[in-house]
Design a protein around this nucleic acid. Structure first.
Length: 109
DNA sequence: GTGCTGACACAGG
DNA sequence: ACCTGTGCCAGCA
């Protein structure tokens, strides 16, 4: 087994989903939790906070499209690079266009 | 088992 | 736009 850094069961699940988010798209913490069908947005956030360095954390935002605390500059740089639809003010994501959802077939991977 | 914490969401002021 | 309180639930002391 390559590397299973003893991640909590929830974290591993979150990471798998975040890894599916294509460039130029984002998912809200609540969306991730909802797709997983368990827990809530807080668990997703906590998971990222502790182990987020292993995934594209910038592709996970708040329901309002707000960036992550402490990494706004990093997130914004990635959004511009991947072409994520940003709002005119440039300080938020245009969730109306950026919000993404995985194909249901992806559940059977 | 109990209680607090927390990359959140929502409602109210 | 802002702040406050409440609900949510996994993780940890």
């Amino acid at each position: 087994m390559p590397k299973t850094p003893e991640l909590p069961p929830y974290v591993e699940r979150v990471f798998d989903l975040v890894d599916r988010i294509p460039p130029g798209r984002v998912m809200a913490y609540g969306d991730v939790a909802e797709w997983l069908g368990a827990g809530g947005p807080r668990q997703v956030g906590t998971a990222m906070a502790r182990y987020g360095g292993a995934v594209a954390w910038w592709r996970v935002v708040r329901g309002d499209g707000g960036f992550l605390p402490g990494h706004e500059r990093e997130a914004l740089a990635n959004y511009r690079e991947e072409g994520t639809p940003l709002r005119p003010d440039g300080g938020r994501i245009d969730m109306a266009r950026a919000r993404w959802w995985p194909p249901e077939d992806s559940t059977a991977e």
